[in-house]
Simulated assay, not measured.
Amino acid sequence: MTKRNKIIYWIATIWLALGMISSGIVQLFKVKAETDFMANLGYPEYFQTILGTWKILGIVVLLIPRYPLLKEWAYAGFFFVMTGAAISHIASGTVSEIFPSLLLLALTITSWYFRPADRKIILANQ
């Protein structure tokens, strides 16, 4: 892995972690603004607990060494959550608020693409 790729990976991963941790905490503590926001998108209040918990656990998995299979699951989960959020904004007519979802989606894809070899699943006999 080149030094450039390693820098790109860590910048994307740190920003992804900060975004997911902050939104996860807001969702876990059910901050009123977030609760109202999610209700406006049509989601029940308990959905915040599920999302917040998985976001925080996903970041823990991404930041600890080893466990490449869990890392793939975390990246997949972030991809699904952020594409779901973007689609929810489009469907509910709040397209003006789609940017954070798309930013976290871009950071997820960038972090996944530039991840080091020891964080990838290596399949034998391809």
Rank of each mutant, 00 (worst) to 15 (best):
K71L: 13
S96A: 02
A124E: 12
P65H: 09
Y43C: 04
A106E: 07
G77F: 11
G52L: 08
I14F: 13
A106F: 12
K6W: 12
P65K: 13
N40R: 02
V95G: 00
A91E: 05
G93Q: 11
N40W: 02
M38E: 07
M1K: 11
I11M: 13
T108A: 05
T110H: 06
M82S: 01
F80D: 03
F37S: 08
I11Y: 02
W112C: 12
Q27P: 15
A74L: 11
P100H: 07
A124R: 06
Q27E: 15
L105D: 02
W15P: 04
A17V: 12
V31S: 03
L123K: 13
T13Q: 14
I122N: 04
V31M: 14
I109R: 08
S22R: 04
L62N: 06
V60A: 11
Y9D: 10
N40E: 14
I98Y: 01
R115G: 08
P116G: 15
G52I: 08
L104F: 14
F78E: 01
R115M: 08
A85V: 07
T83N: 10
I56M: 12
G58I: 15
T83I: 04
G84F: 07
G84N: 03
A17P: 04
Y43G: 07
M20R: 05
K30Y: 12
I14D: 03
I109A: 11
T35C: 11
V81M: 00
G24S: 11
F29W: 14
A33T: 04
F78Y: 09
A12S: 08
T2R: 10
T49N: 14
S22C: 00
A74R: 15
N125S: 00
K30Q: 13
E72W: 03
P100K: 12
I98N: 01
F47T: 01
L63E: 04
F29S: 15
N5V: 04
F29M: 15
A85D: 01
A86N: 09
V26R: 10
K55V: 09
Q48M: 15
Y113L: 00
W10R: 10
T2F: 04
G42E: 07
F79P: 01
A106K: 05
G19M: 07
A106L: 10
Y67E: 10
E34Y: 09
F47R: 02
T108R: 03
F37N: 09
H89I: 02
Y9M: 05
